[in-house]
Amino acid sequence: MTLAPTIETPRLELRGHLPSDLPDSIRMWQSPETIRFIGGRPLTEEEVWLRLLRYWGGWAMLGYGFWRIVERATGRFVGEIGFHELHRDSQPSFAGEPETGWALMAEFHGRGFAREALDAVLAWGDAHIEAGRTVCIIHPANAASLKLARAVGYADLGDLAYKGGTMVLLGRDRP
């Protein structure tokens, strides 16, 4: 069972996670390409399972969360994308603002899938999330994600101190 609505784009299906999706998510969150800018270390099975529970909990508690991205033509797992509210211990704080995030399997990088999925998710968020803006945090060396965030309307809000490092905080006002 999933609380997440299904979104279809020309090439992708975004749907809620199921327990059977755990192996794909483990594979992604243990991939060096995925973790390079997100945490820097492979996640354990337990940590990935807790991530999936967090996704489900977001939908139940907040009315928004993360989707599993699937390539429609092949049924292959592409990645994960969505919104969450993690009450991060960061300076400055952005608690209370929905945070957008995404991660794709390396074999799908550079093919426009992230943009296609992000456009669909932001359109859904604009229609269903009442917050005045959404934010995202991106590692300063992650040029591809910074370029994508700026291309869909996220503007730099400055540096963010988080877990002993510096991230870029970006915000996008609701149209």
Results as ranks from 00 to 15, higher is better:
R174P: 03
P23A: 09
G39P: 02
G165V: 06
A73N: 08
L62T: 02
S20W: 01
R133Y: 08
D126T: 13
R54L: 12
G112E: 12
G63K: 06
H84G: 14
L62P: 08
P5D: 13
E130H: 12
M61I: 09
H109Q: 11
Y154D: 00
L146Y: 06
W59M: 01
G165L: 11
F37R: 00
E8D: 15
H84S: 14
P98Q: 04
A117R: 02
A73R: 09
E116S: 15
D159Q: 07
I38A: 01
G112A: 13
D173F: 07
P19Y: 01
R174F: 02
Q91K: 12
K163E: 14
G101I: 06
T6N: 07
A117H: 09
L169M: 04
F83M: 12
A95N: 14
G65Q: 05
I38M: 11
G158M: 08
M105L: 09
L104G: 13
T34L: 08
R172K: 12
G39V: 01
G158L: 08
L22R: 06
V168F: 02
E8W: 00
E107N: 10
G39M: 00
M167N: 08
L157F: 01
P98S: 07
M28S: 03
A123S: 15
T2H: 07
T134Y: 14
T74K: 12
G165E: 13
A127S: 15
V152Q: 00
T2E: 15
R11N: 10
I35T: 14
H87G: 07
L122K: 04
T134K: 11
E97F: 02
G110M: 09
M28R: 10
G153L: 04
G16W: 00
R174G: 05
I35V: 15
L22T: 09
V152D: 09
V135A: 11
E116N: 14
G82H: 11
A161P: 04
P175S: 06
P140N: 05
G158S: 02
P175L: 07
L148N: 00
N142M: 04
M61V: 10
A117T: 10
L18W: 11
F66T: 08
F66H: 15
F83A: 04
G164W: 10
E45P: 02
L122F: 03
E80L: 07
L157I: 00
D173T: 12
C136I: 09
E47I: 03
G125K: 09
A4N: 06
L104D: 10
R36Q: 12
L146Q: 05
H87L: 13
G153I: 06
L86F: 13
V70R: 12
V135F: 07
Y162G: 06
G164P: 10
A120Q: 03
M28L: 15
V152G: 02
S25P: 00
G101L: 04
E46C: 11
V70E: 14
R115N: 04
I129E: 13
V135R: 04
M167K: 12
I69E: 05
Y162T: 03
F37P: 01
E99K: 00
A120T: 09
V70P: 04
K147F: 06
F66K: 03
G153N: 06
W29E: 15
T2V: 15
D24L: 05
I35Y: 03
A123C: 10
R133D: 09
F108N: 07
R174D: 05
T44R: 04
D119R: 11
V135H: 13
H84R: 12
G112C: 14
E80H: 10
T9V: 02
P23G: 07
W56T: 02
